[in-house]
Simulated scan of single mutants.
Amino acid sequence: MNKQRLLRHRRSHLTERNFPSAGEDAAIVAVEPSPYDQPGSSYKLAFTDTEFILREEMRAVRMQLELLKPELIQTEHGIESTIVIFGSARILPRDAAQQRLAQAIAKGDALAVTRARMQVEMSHYYEEARRFATIVTRATCEADAPLVVVTGGGPGIMEAGNRGAAEANGKSVGLNIVLQHEQHPNPYITPELCFQFHYFALRKMHFLMRSVALVCFPGGFGTLDELFEVLTLTQASKVRRRPILLFGESFWRKLINFDFLVETGMISPEDVHLFHFVETAEQAWDVLSQAFELEAAKEDTEAAESE
């Protein structure tokens, strides 16, 4: 065999699979049913046997799948850098909030009117989240690695983030999770980037793995859980530092007495610099733009020093 024929043979060998794919084997099984292939049967292919996959002993495999599936799909779509938007699932768009207020007034329910007025007031944050996502998407759409908005995939502030990105004709990711309430994905997520999780821990990992910034709007237990986990990991240097923005200083200062935490020694004075308060979408983008420019300048300096 001459050299050229040997090279062709090697290339052919490398491009051919040694074994059929799992999908091909599963397809063969599907069209050729066996009397042994019954519910609870040991004869089923392991990766098609839902009952087996859901066993307690297979938890580590299921966790690995939840790590790998979103990772591989986002890589295939070229998603490298993201901005995560957190916030309450209960904050309504302004028109929906005003409609709910009108209904409460018509019923004459004083308590419902009070709550509805608060919803109208809080709807301001829905509009800011929506505008912020639009600004981010438009500002970076021509970049080599555009910033992609990521949310928890549900309603409220999450919907606003995906909606703003969609209105700017950009991609956005939704990391949904199975819950008794609020588990349905909003309609503005890019369909190919709409994921569903069982494990909170794996979902949280995916929020952080590609993020260059986190933007947190007012919210409840879920929002606080996500915010404080990020602050703790950053404080403990378990993740790289990135801008953390809190929308609505009056809300956050009323909810959390950061100064008291410093006074009592529960956190260090410098820990309050882990985050920034912002009020508008434009202000948030200005803070991020400055942070990204400083980071880029730092990387350029380090690269030059290493040459």
Score class of each variant (00 low, 15 high):
M1S: 13
M1F: 08
K3S: 07
S12F: 15
S12E: 15
R17E: 11
A22S: 11
D25F: 07
A27E: 12
I28M: 02
V29F: 11
P39N: 10
P39M: 01
T48Q: 15
F52D: 09
F52L: 11
L54Y: 08
E56F: 08
A60W: 01
M63C: 11
S88K: 06
S88A: 03
S88W: 02
L92Q: 06
L92N: 01
R94F: 07
A102E: 00
A104K: 04
I105R: 05
K107W: 08
D109L: 08
T114Q: 15
M122L: 05
A133V: 05
G156C: 07
G170H: 13
V173M: 01
V178D: 10
Y188V: 08
Y188A: 06
E192A: 06
L202K: 06
L202G: 01
F207C: 00
G219C: 00
F221N: 10
T223S: 04
D225F: 06
E226M: 04
F228P: 14
V230Q: 09
V239E: 15
R241M: 15
G248Y: 00
G248M: 03
E249S: 02
R253C: 02
R253K: 13
K254H: 15
D259F: 11
L261V: 13
I267R: 12
Q283S: 03
S289P: 03
E295D: 04
D300V: 01
